[in-house]
Design a protein around this nucleic acid. Structure first.
Lengths: 193, 193
DNA sequence: CCCTTGAAGTTTACTTCGTAAACATGCCAG
DNA sequence: CTGGCATGTTTACGAAGTAAACTTCAAGGG
């Protein structure tokens, strides 16, 4: 993919480290993702990563960045459904499936902030923007803000609860159509308050 | 509180360790909560905790257990509002406030499962049961399951997003009445799907 | 063409952590 | 009194994050 020519000792170590980190994450979980393991995977010494990342949190931030991009692409594809309501549901399903398929990455992306800096607000074109745009086409102006937050919170909460096994149905990955029914049901279930 | 008489060397080390762990958690965050720090806080050697906990995950589980109990009590108190709808909203507010006031504990309670065993299903009398009972009184039988899940997912998602600073309004702890309006708005905002 | 220079990577070293194994201590039962 | 068992302690090891000093090499100026 990255056609950067290998210029020096290793070539582009930075990319290799991020790729290795993602692989470690998906194959062996968070606890396997250490700076030293990433360095080993890239075939360099334990201290080499410090030429490209300030510390471990910095590497994790780069990994999360890749995750945001992947999630955005996935939501964008889900959003292409013909019917607007269908598109909204598909986004929700895609969000949850992303979390279920890459749980460790999902936790890094949305878990406790890395390092000590607060997480950046979602930029234009982000996953958030895609969701907000779809909701904006479905609810009147004055309800939009609440609706976007409700949709995000609902789907995010569902994703977290499923990923962390708090919904006793722990049967691996549910089929997407069952998930679609569930998301639809949750979206539709207004609480009478 | 615990009127166990100090029988031996330290007294009841187990309780002391859990208490120290909770204190570390609230004062200095997760990364400060180490077995050794808990032991130091309790005034014993680094290996002493292993007489009471199989490993670190086991101590964290005990800490989470305490958290579940605290959350349950808090929801039960919130549920005492006169109006049933009000009680539901108050539960939601209490859930989010709990998360905001004790973020590190909240993450341990609902984050990645500890050790390698899956989290236990919520027992009778748990926070979940309190929420489910309240919802059951508000929606007809056939919609109950979806409604309970919607309520939990919504509130849990909101709590996670706020705790982890993903809702750019990062202004510490929002006043409870603002939070109440927000929760009410989210509960009421059915998505048109 | 050599030789400096600075980026990229390596070596070494230190601290903290989780945890295993062997040892010490002191209350209780016989 | 004494042995045994629960409770703590000491010692030790490997892995992790990271600081500091050292090495290597590609490239450009004398």
């Amino acid at each position: 993919m990255s056609t950067e020519k290998a210029g020096y000792h290793h070539g582009n170590l930075r990319d290799a480290l991020v790729r290795t980190a993602l692989a470690l994450l998906e194959e062996s979980g968070v606890e396997a993702l250490t700076l030293r393991a990433a360095a080993r995977g890239a075939g360099v010494s334990a201290m080499a990563p410090y030429r490209h990342f300030a510390d471990k949190a910095d590497l994790l931030a780069a990994v999360a960045e890749q995750g945001y991009a992947d999630l955005r692409d996935r939501l964008a594809r889900a959003d292409m459904a013909a019917d607007p309501r269908q598109a909204l549901v598909e986004q929700g399903v895609a969000y949850v499936l992303f979390a279920l398929e890459r749980p460790a990455l999902f936790r890094i992306m949305f878990g406790a902030p890395l390092g000590d800096l607060p997480p950046k607000p979602p930029p234009a074109g982000s996953a958030y923007a895609i969701l907000a745009a779809r909701v904006a086409g479905l609810v009147p102006e004055e309800k939009r803000e609440a609706a976007v937050m409700a949709a995000w919170a609902l789907v995010h909460g569902l994703a977290c609860l499923m990923v962390d096994g708090r919904l006793n149905r722990q049967t691996g990955a549910p089929p997407p159509d069952a998930l679609a029914r569930q998301v639809t049901g949750l979206f539709a279930a207004g609480l009478p308050v």
